[in-house]
């Protein structure tokens, strides 16, 4: 088994004092892994993704990412670049006026010069099947296109792993098919949260089940 990219060791997390969500949760994502995560509403799937990239801190347990334990905010800067998180609601993720600005936001934050950012934008948009969308207005796009732009904005950071939070939520069949196609063509390791069984089976090879704050290897 290859060295894990991301690992949660015995992680617990509570919202407030009396709402434990994760209780001793373990998870390993290694290079090339294609994992799906399923579980009931409110079982903590999104929380788990947010813990992985340090948007939330565990009450106990350890998060090891790319070979190092991560504890403080500064530790997670690198994690967030290398583990791209796609949010459930694209309105949260896309906040710029134009597609190009949104996709370039990450690369510019990483200190890339403008010319290179533009090159990355063109390349990434091509990769998600939206070539030439640079000047389009983000919030005039269809739901499916918006989801792909959000994915492009994550891919523009050139991550090693992708954490996708309900990528098919609100998408019609054609858009879901298109997204499936794009995701299947990507080389990154993936953890996909999804309720859509067909989608999970098309994109991932194993489904994990989050239940009562722990992860079990569930039906594939």
């Amino acid at each position: 088994m290859s060295e894990p990219l991301l690992e949660l060791r015995n992680v617990t997390f509570c919202y407030g004092l009396d709402r434990p969500v994760l209780r001793g949760c373990n998870l390993r994502i290694a290079g090339g892994d294609r994992l799906a995560l399923a579980g009931a509403n409110g079982s903590g799937k999104t929380t788990l993704l947010h813990l992985t990239v340090g948007l939330l801190r565990p009450a106990s347990g350890e998060i090891v990412a790319f070979g190092r334990p991560r504890r403080r905010e500064a530790d997670f800067h690198e994690v967030r670049r290398r583990a791209g998180l796609l949010f459930q609601d694209t309105d949260d993720q896309l906040f710029c006026a134009t597609v190009a600005e949104d996709v370039a936001f990450g690369p510019l934050n990483l200190g890339k010069p403008r010319a290179e950012a533009r090159r990355i934008v063109a390349e990434t948009l091509g990769c998600v099947g939206l070539p030439g969308f640079e000047r389009r207005i983000t919030y005039h796009l269809s739901g499916g296109e918006r989801r792909l732009v959000a994915l492009a904005s994550v891919l523009a950071m050139q991550p090693d792993a992708l954490l996708l939070d309900e990528p098919t939520a609100g998408l019609d069949e054609a858009s879901t098919a298109r997204l499936t196609e794009v995701l299947r063509g990507l080389p990154q390791a993936m953890l996909v949260v999804s309720h859509d069984r067909k989608f999970r089976e098309a994109v991932t090879v194993q489904t994990l089940l989050l239940c009562e704050g722990r992860i079990d290897a569930g039906p594939s």
């Binding site: 947010h50 670049r81 949010f87 609601d89 906040f95 936001f105 990483l110 994550v154 950071m157």
Partner: peptide, 11 residues
């Protein structure tokens, strides 16, 4: 959530 998403992209 927007702030979190921005942080994820290195803001």
């Amino acid at each position: 959530r927007i702030a979190a998403a921005m942080k994820c992209r290195g803001f």
